[in-house]
Design a protein around this nucleic acid. Structure first.
Lengths: 152, 152
DNA sequence: TATTGTTATACTCTATAACTATA
DNA sequence: TATAGTTATAGAGTATAACAATA
């Protein structure tokens, strides 16, 4: 059997050269490591970072439209359709009529709210685990520095 | 026509709640913004962060095997086959016989070395652009903090 | 027996374009 | 004319499993 593929940020004896100097690669490295822990944490549940974010956004912006959600997530509107379809089928989200008959108001159902509560606890634990090497001050500093990245 | 999908790390008037507190989401946000700039920078070339990394790793670890490269990249061996096929077809990389007849020694061709030189310049510029809001000290700090993330 | 590269296959994510119903 | 949601479709990227050659 094939060993499960795992990302190791730095392999012994391998020269990374320029990659070690790039901020972009440092972020990518961290992101891959974090994703692995997220996936392992939520393995039993059918939830991804993307879907988790969607639930949180809808909970905190009740009545948001699919187009708006697509904008927040940075994906095409067609992608949101599939995500909401899945949530609706699972009974976690509801497409309710909005004033504008072209669009829906997205809302969490009771079951959705309840499940998200559990997800949030798990994700918080995961986040504390992956950032356990940092002090509170360092975490704040890291968030601050990360928020400054990207094309201005 | 559909407006091109772009990721905006923080949309006006949207509540992000927990997401604003998670280190994982901060990294994800940064990663998406960085990727957008990378893609825009390298638009004319058929190169992705993944493929660029492969070229750099092979250049600095000449003779590396596909399995080893897969390990470094954190992807399955089958995925590396397609990547190397593409590079070989483009004349950028060479599969040379190694001592072990089961495996290949990967090497950049002259053309590969030349092209990578250009890519490196472009990627460096991109990296400086996305991190232009940080001082040198802050960049070093960010790299240090990021390297501490992930399951210990 | 184990490892390397390969192929076949499938699944997820995403985009684009065209459609409909509404505005 | 423009916008919201939808569908159809296609292209990456990735994984798993099985295989042949070799160790």
């Amino acid at each position: 059997m094939e060993p499960r593929v795992r990302f190791n940020a730095r392999i012994e004896g391998v020269e990374y050269d320029l990659l070690d100097e790039l901020i972009g690669y440092a972020v990518r490295r961290a992101q891959l490591s974090i994703y692995e822990d997220f996936a392992a944490t939520m393995e039993a549940d059918e939830i991804t970072p993307q879907r988790f974010s969607s639930l949180v956004i809808v909970e905190n912006n009740p009545g948001i439209s699919q187009s708006r959600l697509a904008e927040v997530m940075g994906i095409a509107r067609s992608g949101v359709v599939a995500i909401i379809d899945g949530f609706e089928k699972a009974g976690l989200m509801e497409r309710r009529a909005s004033g504008d008959r072209r669009s829906y108001s997205l809302l969490l159902t009771q079951a959705g709210t309840r499940l998200l509560k559990r997800y949030k606890r798990a994700v918080k634990e995961h986040d504390e685990r992956i950032s356990a090497g940092l002090t509170l001050t360092e975490k704040a500093q890291l968030r601050r520095l990360l928020s400054k990245l990207g094309t201005a």
